[in-house]
Design a protein around this nucleic acid. Structure first.
Lengths: 340, 340
DNA sequence: GACTGGCACTCGTTACAGTCGAGTGCCAGG
DNA sequence: CCTGGCACTCGACTGTAACGAGTGCCAGTC
C-alpha cells in the first residue's frame, strides 16, 4: 500500500533503465546506475514490495524486474515530468511543417514528422467533419442526370460525392440549387445541418423539389450521419525496432489493428479537450493492442479541437519524451491551421 | 543447358511443393507426391543439373531443394498456366465492388479486396492525373485574396489547391475567371494543358491577368508538372503470414519500402498496356525488396490504362493464382470506371 | 545410354548433461 | 530500518551424442 519515496524512486529507476536497455533490471545494476544511497539488498526488499503491489514482475525466477502496465501507469501519472523538447526537435518540427500548402499536405507532413520524431507509428486524424462548418457547397454538372457535390469545410477538408439525380436538370436549375443550398448552409456547423437541410427541401420551389430531395439525402447520409473520418498513418516500419522483444514477437495483431480505421479512430479520436491521453497496454480496449501503448491528444486552431493525433508503440516506450513530442506537434499543427 | 521435359516437370513440382509447404523439398517426397514415373535417384540427378543451371539451390548440405529467383522466373514464364478463378472468388469480387459510390470508395474497396483474395499486400494507384482529362474546374472564394481551386477529372479524381492571390478579387471577376478557365481547359488532357494555360494568361483581360497568372502557376506546378499520384495500401498484416521464414526474418526493409510512395509507384505504376508484370526477388530494383515479388497490371475503363494495381508478397508465392486474381480485379475495376 | 538400388557421407536438429552466473529471498547483526 | 552474507533458483550457454533427412556416386540392369 504505502509506497514511500524511495520505493517510488526505485520504480522510476526500473522504468527508465528498462526503457533504455530493454533488459530486465536487477538490484545491483540499479544501485550502480542511480544514486539511491542504499544497498542492493534494500533495493531488493523494495522490489519485493513493488512486485507484491503489481507494479513490476519477474519474467523468470532468476531474472531482473520489468515494469507491469500498472507500473508504467504509476510512472506516467506520478513519477515523470514532461521532458522539454530539444532545440533540434523544435527546429525539426518547424522545418517540416513550414511550406505545407494543402490540408492533405499538412496531414501527411505531420504524420511523417511524428513518426520520425518519436520513432513509432504515428496516426493523424483529418479534421473531423462533425466539428467542421460548411464554408461552401459547389454543384458541378457531370452529365444531365449527375452532379458532383463538393463541400468545402472551414477546416480545409474538401469532400466530394457523386449525386445520381432522379431526372435531367437544366443548367439554370443547377445554379438555383447552388444558390439555395449555400444561402441556407454556408457557415453552419455540419452537426447542425439536419433541420436546415430539411427546411431546404420544404422551401424549395416545386419543380426543384425532387432534385433537392436527392441532394439532401446524399448530404445527410454521407456527410452528416456517416461521419466520414479520414486517417493518415506512418512509421509502421518502426514497429520492428527493438527486435522481436516488443509485442511478444508477433507484429501480426498490431498490423491488423492498424488497418482498421475504426480502431484507430477510437484510439486517437475520442479526445477530451486539450488533455494528452495515455493508454498503456491492456488499458486499451482492443485485444490486438494489449502489448502496445498509445499517446494521443487533440489538435485544432486556437482552443477548439477538430481532430486527434498520436502515436502507438510498445508499452516499453519513453513516455515523457513521447508525450512532449505529441503535444508539441499538436500545438504546431493547431497554429498552422489557425493561419488558414 | 538443355532441360528436357522431365527436368522441367521436376522444377515445376519443386516450385509447387515448396510454395505450398514452405519447406525444402527432397527427391523422395517429390516422387511420392507427383507421378513422375521415375525413382528418387533419377530425380536427384535431374536436381543436380537444375542446381548447376541455377534454378534451385540447397539451403544446407543435407536439406532439400528450394527454387531460386531464376527458378521462379522459368516457372512463371514457361511452366504455369493462369489459374481460372473459382466462382466463389468471382462472386467475392462482384459483391465487394458493387455499391461503390465514390472514386475513393472504389479504390479503397479494391485494395482491400485484392489484399483479402491474394492474402498479400495490395497496392492500388489512383487514376493518374497525367492520363486524365479535365472535366471541370471550379473556383471557390475563401476570402477576398484566397481561392480554392477544385479540379474534377474525367477519371473521377478531384483535386483541390488553395491559391493565394496577389490582391483582392471581386466576386464578379471570379465568375469571369471560372468561365475563361473552363472554356479553355475543359475536356483537355492534363498533359496537354501547358500551352493552353499559357494562352489563358496571354489572352486574359488586363485587369484579370495577374490573378490568372497565379492561378496558372498553381495549376501547372501542382497538377501538371509535379504529377500528384495517390496510392492506397492494404494487407500489410499479411506480411506476417508464413512465420518469419519469408523475408529472411525481417519485415523492416519491406515496411520501409511500403512507406515510400515513389517506390510503390515504380513497382505498380510503370505498366505497359494490358500486360501483367511479374517482378521476382532481385529482378526488382530496390534493395529493400530483394526478398519480395510483385505482380502488377494496369487498369482503366475500356482499353485505356489510367493507373496500376498489384500485390507484393514473398518470392515464395502462388504465382498462377495471384496473377489470375490481379488480372480479374483489374478488369472489374475497369468496368466499374467505365460505367461512370 | 538412361534409369535404378544401394551405400557412404554430410550436416542440421534434437536431446541431454553440466557449468556458469545473474539475480533473488531470507536472516542475523549493526 | 538498513546491510552484508549466504544458499538457492533457473535461464543461458556449451559440449557431446544420437538421429535422420537428404544427397552424390557407383555399379548393375533394361
Amino acid at each position: 500500500m504505502g509506497l514511500d519515496d524511495r520505493k517510488l524512486a526505485v520504480l522510476r529507476a526500473i522504468v527508465e533503465d528498462y526503457v533504455s536497455t530493454q533488459e530486465p533490471v536487477g538490484s545491483k545494476a540499479l544501485v550502480e546506475r542511480h544514486q539511491l544511497g542504499v544497498s542492493p539488498a534494500t533495493v531488493r526488499n523494495d522490489m519485493a514490495v513493488l512486485e507484491e503491489e503489481g507494479y513490476i514482475r519477474q519474467p523468470h525466477t532468476s531474472a531482473g524486474r520489468v515494469p507491469t502496465d500498472r507500473g508504467y501507469r504509476l510512472f506516467v501519472d506520478r513519477l515523470s515530468r514532461v521532458k522539454p523538447l530539444s532545440p533540434a526537435e523544435r527546429r525539426a518540427i518547424e522545418r517540416f511543417l513550414v511550406g505545407a500548402v494543402d490540408l492533405d499536405d499538412v496531414v501527411h507532413r505531420t504524420v511523417r514528422l511524428l513518426a520520425q520524431l518519436t520513432r513509432q507509428v504515428a496516426v493523424v486524424q483529418y479534421p473531423s467533419l462533425a466539428r467542421s462548418s460548411v464554408r461552401h457547397l459547389e454543384l458541378v454538372p457531370i452529365s444531365t442526370t449527375r452532379l458532383m457535390l463538393v463541400m468545402i469545410a472551414d477546416t480545409g477538408r474538401v469532400e466530394q460525392r457523386l449525386v445520381e439525380l432522379p431526372g435531367p436538370v437544366p443548367a439554370d436549375d443547377v445554379t438555383d440549387l447552388r444558390r439555395l443550398v449555400n444561402e441556407k448552409l454556408a457557415g453552419a456547423r455540419l452537426s447542425d445541418t439536419p433541420p436546415l437541410v430539411q427546411a431546404l427541401v420544404d422551401e424549395a420551389p416545386a419543380e426543384l423539389r425532387p432534385t433537392m430531395a436527392t441532394l439532401a439525402s446524399v448530404l445527410l447520409e454521407t456527410l452528416v450521419e456517416r461521419h466520414e473520418e479520414r486517417i493518415a498513418l506512418a512509421g509502421t516500419a518502426n514497429l520492428t525496432r527493438g527486435g522481436l522483444l516488443d509485442f511478444q514477437g508477433s507484429l501480426r495483431p498490431i498490423l491488423e489493428a492498424l488497418e482498421e480505421e475504426v480502431v484507430l479512430l477510437k484510439l486517437i479520436g475520442e479526445t477530451e479537450p486539450s488533455t494528452t491521453r495515455v493508454l498503456i497496454g491492456d488499458e486499451n480496449e482492443f485485444d490486438n493492442l494489449r502489448a502496445a501503448s498509445v499517446v494521443s491528444t487533440g489538435y485544432g486552431p486556437g482552443a477548439t479541437i477538430v481532430g486527434g493525433l498520436g502515436v502507438l508503440g510498445p508499452t516499453r516506450m519513453d513516455y515523457p519524451g513521447t508525450i512532449a513530442t505529441v503535444r508539441a506537434v499538436a500545438r504546431y499543427v493547431g497554429e498552422l491551421l489557425a493561419q488558414n
